[in-house]
Write a protein that binds this DNA or RNA. Structure first.
Length: 904
RNA sequence: GCGGGGAUGGCGGAACGGUAGACGCGCAGGAUUUAGGAUCCUGUUUCCUCAAGGAAGUGGAGGUUCAAAUCCUCUUCCCCGCACCA
């Protein structure tokens, strides 16, 4: 009997329908018999371009992982949803003239269909959509809780403004040279009041709790760097003839005596020093500041854009682009002097853009002898260089290493870094300053002036402003929400707090009220025109029906906030909603949360290592603090995968013409081929390049499998037996595939399956029970083929051509119970017999002086007999020749692995 | 500059310190076919050789070891992240 060609079009569609009808991938809440396993993959932004092969790589691989987990008896939750708010949807809509609500729906339908065509085992009953009012009701609810707990506040922050288009721009729309991506005009930075989230309050916990979760080192280190904690001192310098003090942050308080000048950032100078500058200096200082502010290119770091730093921090961007320009310092003497608290010497105060306004206090003490940047600055402005740590040649370069402390009064004789802690306490005792910690992490700008996002559920009441009324009590205004504060104090006990930073001082919630929770959601109104307003406000500002409302406090006419949330808002907490997607009363049922959380395994791309992962951890921790979720961390384990590049090695992009559409692959080769290939391409965490030829290799493999299962399985009536070699190979494969899947080594798992088929083809017929085992370990990788083969194996009699011919006929359509053992995916994962993973005859390589000279075959039961093995080794002809070359001075036998003779 | 990860055939990549190159692609030869495609078989690190057998070989230089792609030191190059972070 010759099998018909494997017809993926009919077979894959058939089983997808059967799976949907029988619902075998549904997760069961509160299942007590099975252990829960929450497998999460990042949900996509459903773009008009459809699924990317990168999505398939992640979802198909984790689908295999989930399928194995199910077969191992876990109650697996593997959900999918749509992150559909955001700028791309809005831009696409502006381009096509079709409303985003329409295109988003179409795109989602397409994505869902594509997922189903791939046979991914998502639990579709739990699908979520961030643009659904029933969903974003809770996104808004979370915002209100943040506000009530003092974690959402308003502050002036810079926005990218295109004067030509009269609109605010997202950072992605501004090109590296500061020009607007679409119109090519130079953009500006404008100050605008925005909502910010106080993520900095959680910096310490976000950092320390990394110890409790399983993140791969690369992800973990990046998160640590992003939070960027450094400890040291904040030291106060008294400005001479003034009550004013300048507070600086330093990680090297031991070099205090070596501080020969202070430097403040341009913005610090503008805000705090300008009125004290002596007339003589005022003109040059003003000129310098103007220089700094005249250029407003997109030169800030990524984090400062996201984190909200009020103004450009550099004066000379053109120098920035060149290598080594960092050493070319600019700056100006302010004419002011300050007293070094340690030795009471007066030192000059300079203004320079090499001091970052957004880091620390925006002011530093210059220690040219021990800091490279200060050294360059001192050289340029002819400032004294005093060495206070022994070492290096301070006339040539700064010395940042360790050493004995010198020229430092009472600290002489101590050494850095050994005595740093006693120096820290001495500084505190002397009243010069205090221990301090700073963070790289900044508060999170949460306002967007765009239409396609969740409306921020806040109301602004002019009347209340007149009366000075606010949502918060006077006491709360002083210290934030007391309850919240206490909570954090408990958690942060013994942990240093961030220094009071000037950027937190603008919070004035007067007149602002959250929309009453009973009125949620604040629905995004349908608008025909959602182009930018032209004033820098959100397009929603043009919709008076939306804007006009009543003050929740006094009932006077009031205005709604028209800014919307960033696209991160919906993705911060989506994994919670999967647990209870239709709950209208609360975020998610408490019991369900307790059953499923935390996410056991979160898998996604490296591009989300810092922002999404950190933001969602922050929001989750906040929800934990207010008692909404049961654990303090959302994800128990996180791994990331590499991206899929086009066959030319470049990123897939329409403009390169190297985009692979999964649909055409599925159509021509089938979903199983695509899935298998994407797992086989290369190591999961590495970048991989698309290769059509390799894909076809996987297609061949699938057809060969089909042929073998049809033609080379022993008839059950005859109780056919596999050859010994084949059985051993099978058991070895079960072991290897199990381990590889667990370790996300999908590529070698697939290779193992290929090896097994190769052996099978060489050895001839396989027994039915061995064939079933093979089918079971195949199931996670090629779920459609495995299901079809399983049916074939269940009853060899229906596995005939006649039956295969009847695909699509009524007989086959009614397969609700096609076979007693349906489905292969609900079977138990096979175990292997350890005895059967070892060959009867073992090949032992023989080395002379570490070089391979021959091999011998040893019976399995003889491998413990060292003397025997060594003796046998010497009978090998070639070995004998080499042994004759000299005297054997050492004989090494590595049990079951190798023999080495050392001959001299 | 700092941090992280790499470098293995023609290509993608395998290798608990123990037979380097699994598996796949590609290529070569053969079979089948009217032909093409598909499929199957054989070979395929390089060099010497009909072969048997050798020699060299995991970016480079040293070292540890009976034995190193793997561990250590130095070094070159590549990728990723952060970057005037005090």
């Amino acid at each position: 009997m010759t099998a018909k060609k494997y017809d993926h079009k009919i077979i894959e569609k058939h089983w997808q329908d059967v799976w949907e009808k029988t619902g075998i991938y549904k997760a069961v809440d509160f299942d007590k018999k099975r252990k829960k396993f929450y497998q999460l993959v990042e949900f996509p932004y459903p773009s008009g371009a459809g699924l990317h092969v990168g999505h398939v790589r992640s979802w198909a691989s984790m689908d295999a992982y989930s399928r194995k987990k199910r077969m191992e008896g876990y109650n697996v939750l593997y959900p999918m949803g749509w992150d559909a708010f955001g700028l791309p949807a809005e831009n696409y809509a502006i381009k096509t003239g079709i409303h985003p609500s329409v295109t988003v729906k179409e795109n989602i339908d397409n994505f869902r269909k594509q997922c189903k065509n791939l046979g991914l085992s998502f639990d579709w009953d739990r699908e979520v959509n961030t643009t659904d009012p029933a969903y974003y009701k809770w996104t808004q609810w979370i915002f209100i809780q943040l506000f009530k707990n003092g974690l959402a506040y308003r502050s002036e922050v810079p926005v990218n403004w295109c004067p030509f288009c009269k609109t605010n721009l997202a950072d992605e729309e501004v090109m590296a040279d500061g020009k607007h991506e679409r119109c090519g005009n130079q953009t500006e930075k404008r100050m605008q009041k925005q909502w910010l989230l106080r993520i900095t309050k959680y910096a310490d916990r976000l950092l320390s709790d990394l110890n409790e979760i399983d993140f791969s080192p690369r992800i973990r280190i990046q998160q640590e760097n992003w939070i960027g904690k450094s400890t040291g001192s904040s030291i106060k310098f008294q400005i001479t003839n003034s009550k004013l003090q300048i507070e600086v942050f330093t990680t090297r308080p031991d070099t205090l005596y070596g501080s020969t000048f202070l430097v403040v950032s341009p913005r610090y100078a503008k805000k705090k020093l300008l009125k004290y500058i002596p007339d003589k200096y005022l003109r040059s200082v003003t000129k310098y500041l103007e220089e700094c502010y005249s250029v407003s290119l997109r030169v800030e770091s990524k984090q400062s854009q996201l984190g909200g730093h009020p103004e450009p921090s550099t004066c000379h961007p053109e120098e920035r682009s060149e290598e080594g320009s960092h050493n070319e310092k600019t700056g100006i003497d302010s004419g002011l002097k300050a007293k070094n608290p340690a030795d009471s010497k007066d030192i000059p105060i300079y203004i320079s853009d090499y001091v970052l306004d957004e880091y620390g206090t925006g002011a530093i003490m210059g220690v040219p002898a021990h800091d490279e940047r200060d050294f360059a600055f001192a050289k340029k402005f002819n400032l004294p260089i005093i060495g206070v740590i022994d070492g290096g040649d301070k006339s040539l370069e700064a010395y940042a290493g360790e050493g004995k402390i010198i020229n430092s009064g009472k600290w002489d004789g101590l050494s850095y870094p050994k005595d740093i802690s006693s120096i820290l306490s001495d500084i505190e005792k002397s009243g010069w300053g205090k221990k301090s910690t700073t963070y790289h992490l900044h508060d999170w700008i949460f306002s967007r002036q765009h239409y396609w996002g969740e409306p921020i559920p806040m109301v602004y009441c002019e009347n209340c402003v007149k009366e000075g009324k606010s949502f918060f009590t006077e006491e709360q205004k002083k210290g934030g929400n007391e309850e919240m504060k206490n909570k954090n104090d408990v958690i942060l006990e013994g942990v240093e707090r961030p220094i009071e930073s000037h950027q937190f001082n603008n919070w004035n919630p007067v007149g602002w009220y959250p929309v009453p929770e009973s009125d949620l959601p604040v629905t995004l109104p349908f608008m025909e025109k959602y182009q930018p307003s032209g004033t820098g406000e959100s397009p929603l500002a043009n919709n008076l029906n939306f804007v006009k409302t009543k003050c929740p406090a006094c009932g006077s006419p009031a205005k709604r906030e028209t800014d919307t949330m960033p696209n991160w808002a919906g993705s911060n907490w989506y994994f919670i909603r999967y647990l209870d997607p239709n709950n209208g009363k609360i975020l998610a049922d408490d019991r369900k949360l307790k059953y499923w959380m935390p996410v056991d395994f979160y898998q996604g791309g490296y591009e989300h290592t810092t922002l999404h992962l950190l933001y969602s951890r922050f929001i989750y921790k906040f929800l934990y603090d207010i008692g909404v979720v049961p654990t303090s961390e959302p994800y128990a384990k996180r791994r990331s995968h590499g991206i899929v590049l086009g066959s030319d090695g470049r990123k897939m992009s329409k403009s390169f013409g190297n985009v692979i559409n999964p649909d055409t692959i599925v159509e021509k080769y089938g979903a199983d081929t695509l899935r298998l290939y994407e797992m086989f391409m290369g190591p999961f965490d590495q970048m991989v390049v698309w290769s059509q030829e390799s894909l076809e290799g996987c297609y061949r493999f699938i057809n060969r499998l089909w042929k073998a299962f049809n033609e080379k399985v022993g008839e059950s009536s005859k109780v056919g037996k596999s050859s010994k070699e084949l059985s051993i190979k099978l058991h070895q494969s079960i072991k290897k595939v199990s381990e590889d899947l667990e370790n996300l080594k999908f590529n070698t798992a697939v290779a193992t399956l290929m090896e097994l088929l190769n052996t099978w083809e060489d050895e001839g017929v396989i027994s039915k029970s061995d064939a079933e085992k093979f089918c079971l370990i195949l199931a996670p990788f090629t779920p459609h083929l495995a299901e079809e083969v399983w049916l074939l194996l269940c009853d060899r009699k229906i596995g005939t051509d006649k039956n295969i011919d009847s695909h699509g006929s009524d007989q086959r359509k009614s397969v609700n119970n096609p076979c007693k053992s349906y489905s292969v995916h609900t079977q138990l994962w096979p175990s292997y017999d350890p005895k059967l993973t070892v060959e009867e005859k073992i090949t032992i390589p023989i080395q002379i002086n570490g070089k391979l000279r021959g091999t011998i075959e040893i019976d399995r039961d003889k491998i413990d007999d060292e003397k025997f093995v060594l003796l046998e080794s010497k009978y090998n002809k070639v070995v004998q020749k080499w042994l004759a070359e000299g005297k054997v001075i050492k004989e090494i036998y590595v049990h079951g692995r190798l023999v080495n003779f050392v001959v001299r």
